[in-house]
């Protein structure tokens, strides 16, 4: 899923300061699962903002609505009724959701309530970890199913570097060394020999360094 976390309250309050009526929009997909932008979080954030305004004596109204996905136009259409009644939208979707709402309703400011961080999964309850960086040229077949692009702090293709210690990355003891994991996994798969081959320099043009990426399926286009 896409992982995102709520922006600091202070930042959100500064963003909405100029507006009198704000629609807080949740998304029922990734950010619901990572507990940062679903219906429940919309309720909590709106309630918090209401209280904060009440303490400061600000007049501001909040409307709450959560849609199935903020990254598909059909669902965003469902916001129209509420969007027409407010003067700003605070999206608790990922960056894609914010942009898509802004594209559909170009007349109204759409503000990001979340910081979108990565593609990952919950590794344990309450912890979400990044596991893929969307590099556009997947090499998981060569690395025992562990991504060194997203999970090695230096994106090494021929790790582990000299900072790997006891399975931890040099950047922090909280971070597993991706290459230590690769080593362990390939060992189990009986494929350690493949680590002796030099993996050539990566082609980063597919990883976003060649400009924004686009997938086109002619067979599906109208």
């Amino acid at each position: 899923m896409i992982i995102a976390e709520q922006k600091p309250l202070k930042e959100i309050r500064e963003m909405i300061a100029p507006y009198k009526k704000v629609l807080v929009v949740g998304c029922g997909t990734c950010v619901t699962v990572c507990l940062s932008g679903g219906e429940k979080e919309v309720g909590v954030l709106a309630s918090t903002l209401r209280l904060a305004d009440a303490v400061d004596g600000n007049e501001r109204e909040f409307v709450e609505q959560t849609i199935t996905r903020q990254c598909e136009d059909e669902f965003i259409e469902q916001l129209r009724g509420n969007v027409e009644k407010v003067d700003a939208v605070l999206s608790l979707g990922c960056g894609v959701g914010v942009q898509d709402i802004a594209a559909i309703f170009p007349e109204i400011p759409v503000l990001p309530g979340l910081n979108t961080t990565s593609f990952g999964r919950p590794s344990e309850q309450g912890v979400w970890v990044e596991e893929c960086a969307g590099c556009g040229d997947c090499i998981l077949d060569e690395t025992g199913g562990i991504c060194p692009i997203a999970r090695c702090a230096k994106n090494l293709l021929n790790g582990p570097c000299g900072g790997s210690h006891g399975g931890k990355c040099e950047i922090s003891d909280d971070t597993p060394c991706a290459w230590a994991l690769v080593y362990e996994r390939l060992g189990r798969l009986g494929k350690l020999k493949t680590l002796e081959e030099i993996k050539p320099a990566k082609n980063w043009s597919t990883a976003g360094h060649g400009g924004p990426r686009k997938m086109v399926r002619e067979d599906l286009r109208k």
């Binding site: 209401r50 400061d56 600000n58």
Partner: peptide
């Protein structure tokens, strides 16, 4: 709370 919220 300077403003009463219970209505809205």
């Amino acid at each position: 709370l300077k403003r009463n919220l219970s209505d809205e």
